[in-house]
Every structure is written in C-alpha cells, then in structure tokens.
Amino acid sequence: MKVVTVDELKKLIRNNEEDKIDEIDVVTTATCGIMSGTSGIFHLNFNTLFRRAKKIFFNDIEGVVGVCPNEYLGRVDCIFFGEVGFLFKDIVKGKDIDVKVITDEGKEIEEIFNIEKFETAKMIGTRFAFKNYLAFTSNKETATIFHRFKLKIGEASFSGCGEINPLENMIIKDKNDVVGLRGLLNGAECLVLGFGTRSSLEKPNLMISANMKDMDSYYLGGFLTSGGIEIYNTVALPVDVRKHREALKKLDKDIPLPLVNLFGREIIDYGKYSDVWENVDLRPKIYIEKCKNCNICKAEESCPTNAIKKENNKIIITEDCFGCGVCGYVCEVFKIRLGEICGLKITCRQSDRKRALKLAKELKKRIIKGELSI
C-alpha cells in the first residue's frame, strides 16, 4: 500500500503530475485550529469517601459533575468544557492538577491528580475539523473569540487549513460516510463518531473521541482571545484515493474563503484560501536589532499561546508558537506574512498548518508501520 501525506500529493498536482495519484492508495490529511466544541470526560477516585459530589474544580476551573452519582464511593464522573485550553494542555503534559470537590453535604475535599491518576481522561470533540471556515471582519471595533484583540474596522482574521483539511479532500454523500473513520487527534488514535453539531453535507464537521492519556501536548493548547480563552486541536485522517480521487485534486485556489461580518455572519465577499496560505510565513522571524528593551515586552504579554519569552535580553519563541501573527501586529521585532482577504489585511490567524502537516506525517508513519489500522 502506498501512503503519502497531503502536502506531498498537492506538490505533485502543482507540478502537473496529477496522473500519479492513481499510484497512491491513501493520503494522510490534517487540520489544526481553534475548535471550541472541545470537552473532557474524567473519572476520579478520591482517597476520602463522601456521599456525592455537588461541584468540582480543576485548578479553580469549574466542571460539571455527572452523570453517574457514584454514591458513597468517593468517586466522581465529570465533564469540563469552555475555557479549558491551557488546562487540558497541562493535563496532557502530566502536570499536577489541584482538584477540589464540594460534596452535597457541604464538605470540601482537595487532592492532587495527574494524567496517570485519572482513571478516565477522554476528549470528545462535538465540532471538529470543519470543512474549512470563514474570514471575519467587523463594521465596528469589538471583542471576539476570533482575534487576540478587539477586531478593528479594516482588519480580518480567519480559520481553516485549506487544501490540507481532511473534509476538503473527501466526497461525502451521506452523513454516515464518516462514521468509524480512524485517525489521530492530538497524536492519539481517535475514532470519528459521526457528524458534529451544526453540521451539514455542504458544511460538515466531525464528532471525534480519543484518549487524552495517549495525546502529545504539542498538538493542543490554549489560545487567548479578546472574547475569552479558546482551545486548539490537531486532527489527522486518512483518505482513500479510490473513493475521493476528485476531491483530492483541489488546491487552495479552488477553495472559496467567505469574508463575513462578525455580526450575523452576513457574507460580504469571497476570497480563496490561496489568498491566506500562499506566499505567507508559517512562523514569525525575529529581528533582534530592532528590540527597544521595553520594560514590558508587548509581544510576550500579547502572545495568545504564551510562546514568547524574554530572558536576559534574549527573545525566545517556544514550540507553543501557533503562527497566529499577533507578535508582528504589536512589535516591529517580529515579522510574519499572513496575506489578505478581499483587500483586508489579516491580523490574526487561528489555524496552524505547521502542526497539521506534522501530524499528517505522523499518521503516514503509523499506517506504514501497521500501528494504526484504517
């Protein structure tokens, strides 16, 4: 069986070698971006017995107790969602998590847990891997989850990995076509449960589940926005060439990117994913000679993923960098090309092709080695 990554395939097509697609069996596709519909389901076994948990907190972030009562067992089932991006990254990293339970009798119980101590730690995405998404602008300056800062008039942000996105490379005729697909979610083997919420044949997304204990923390994390903390995830799925040959031929220039008004999502105009993914930078460049040694480093303070560190007059960009472009927005030390859409400059990018392509490569390796059956 011949397996290639999606970027390897797209290079063949750009080189007018698309006839070689018939020599390929499977293409590993991927996407990475803000995926708000992310939840974690946990089961914990405390050292103290109590009747029933009423409230639960991980590092002071409140979850939802349920669904099993676990009466008089000192055990809790719970669900966490919402502003959990940095929390889930810490859990997957194996960091200690301060867990506090308030029982229905008013007792407060506190213990330290980590990923190994959680008896169950599973992620379920209710709306993952959208078949690309939208570019946003606004007719007034406003706080939004689609930008690190308030989105200003004349600016735009966008999401979607374009031609490498799994669903963009599939022909889906029925919502059940995706049920049972296996791939990788944040480095862990995952199962596609079916269509996600707000999904349709024209604009599908996926409901996916995977074990957080098997995940790699590089592929997920928190993303600060002016509308709150979001979470990004990375999904890689294999695509059968025999079933999806024509869809696999699409390039960024063939995929529309609607520009919408943040308020109501009214379509203003259409661009293409080539506008925002061709001739751009996946990561910023540093021009240290331009650093003014500010008392407070604006780039460090503003970075949505806390990836920029300034130590001993040295600027370091860690692997937590998402390539969003915010550092270049606030400081001339950083330069990154993000492209533009319908004449508007992109000032915040909420998808990361670098992570996506890395996971597509990892999926290819596991399929070839026989470590993941498809």
Rank of each mutant, 00 (worst) to 15 (best):
K175C: 00
N279M: 04
V99Y: 04
V6S: 08
F130Q: 07
D352S: 13
A247Q: 03
T197C: 10
K213Q: 09
L87K: 04
C348V: 07
Y270I: 14
P258C: 11
I13Q: 10
D177Y: 03
N233S: 07
N313E: 14
K100Y: 01
A360C: 05
I102M: 04
I164C: 01
G33E: 02
D22H: 12
K213E: 08
T28W: 08
N261I: 13
Y270A: 07
T225K: 04
D320R: 13
L134M: 15
G85M: 00
M170D: 05
G82V: 07
F223W: 05
T120Q: 14
V64S: 15
I145S: 13
I91L: 10
N279S: 11
V260D: 10
D22E: 14
V101R: 00
L9V: 06
M215D: 01
Y232H: 15
D60Q: 15
V27N: 05
A135C: 02
V192D: 04
Y329F: 09
G264Q: 13
T318M: 08
R182H: 14
V26Q: 01
I61M: 13
C321V: 04
E202P: 01
F86T: 10
D174Q: 02
N176W: 01
K173T: 13
D352V: 05
Y329A: 00
D320M: 07
D275K: 05
D90G: 04
T347A: 01
A236H: 06
D25R: 08
F223D: 04
K175P: 03
L151I: 10
